[in-house]
Design a protein around this nucleic acid. Structure first.
Length: 192
DNA sequence: CACCCGATTATCT
DNA sequence: GATAATCGGGTGT
């Protein structure tokens, strides 16, 4: 299994969002490996995307979106939850990131159940706020390089093939017409 | 199952 | 003062 390199993320954001489906997100907590298959993503671009945090330029929060690809972008939302993104954009783009919206739990399931206070496997990582809670990802994991062998990275994980479905992004008020949400058809961990 | 709403804080108007 | 890339618990059908 190979860690995804910088070049993987250096393509149009929506292309990377699609390509991340079926890859494995890994986070080590106290020697426990927590991992999940990425089964749902959304692309957020730069000033051409009104729904993106980057659409009105650089501010303190979104600095990672304007930085090098392959880094994490974690932000706090609704006063309750963290959302985990991976910076991805073509070379000529100023900003962009892929929101990881759902995982299929693979390793460290008991630890994830503890973090979530929830035993139902299909309710562990089936949403952007749920998966960060399950993998214990918060502000401390913001702006980390995911292309090196640290505690947080993404690896190629060639298992069963999947059919990719496309739809409009959810939970936004503007830019709703762009079909930049991607998910593995039929997977029970895809958010509703 | 469907809707409705409160939590709780960074950011925007 | 309002809103947000969300979630879980409540009520009603």
């Amino acid at each position: 299994m190979k860690i995804l390199d910088r070049n993987f993320y250096m393509r149009d954001t929506e292309v990377v969002a699609r390509a991340l489906l079926g890859k494995l997100l890994v986070h080590y907590i106290d020697d426990h490996m927590l991992s999940g298959l990425i089964v749902e993503t959304e692309a957020y671009r730069a000033d051409d995307d009104p729904a993106s945090h980057a659409c009105r330029g650089k501010i303190t929060r979104n600095i990672p979106m304007f930085g090098p690809v392959g880094y994490s972008y974690v932000y706090f939302i609704y006063g309750n939850h963290f959302c985990f993104n991976i910076v991805a954009k073509a070379k000529n783009q100023p900003a962009g990131a892929v929101l990881i919206r759902a995982l299929e739990p693979i390793k460290g399931i008991e630890v994830m159940q503890k973090h979530r206070n929830q035993t139902n496997l299909s309710n562990l990582t089936n949403g952007p706020g749920k998966l960060t809670q399950a993998l214990n990802i918060s502000k401390e994991q913001n702006a980390l390089d995911l292309t090196t062998q640290g505690k947080l990275y993404v690896v190629d994980y060639d298992t069963k093939s999947h059919v990719i479905e496309t739809s409009c992004r959810v939970g936004i008020r503007v830019g709703t017409e762009k079909k930049w949400r991607f998910y593995c058809k039929g997977n029970v961990n895809v958010s509703k």
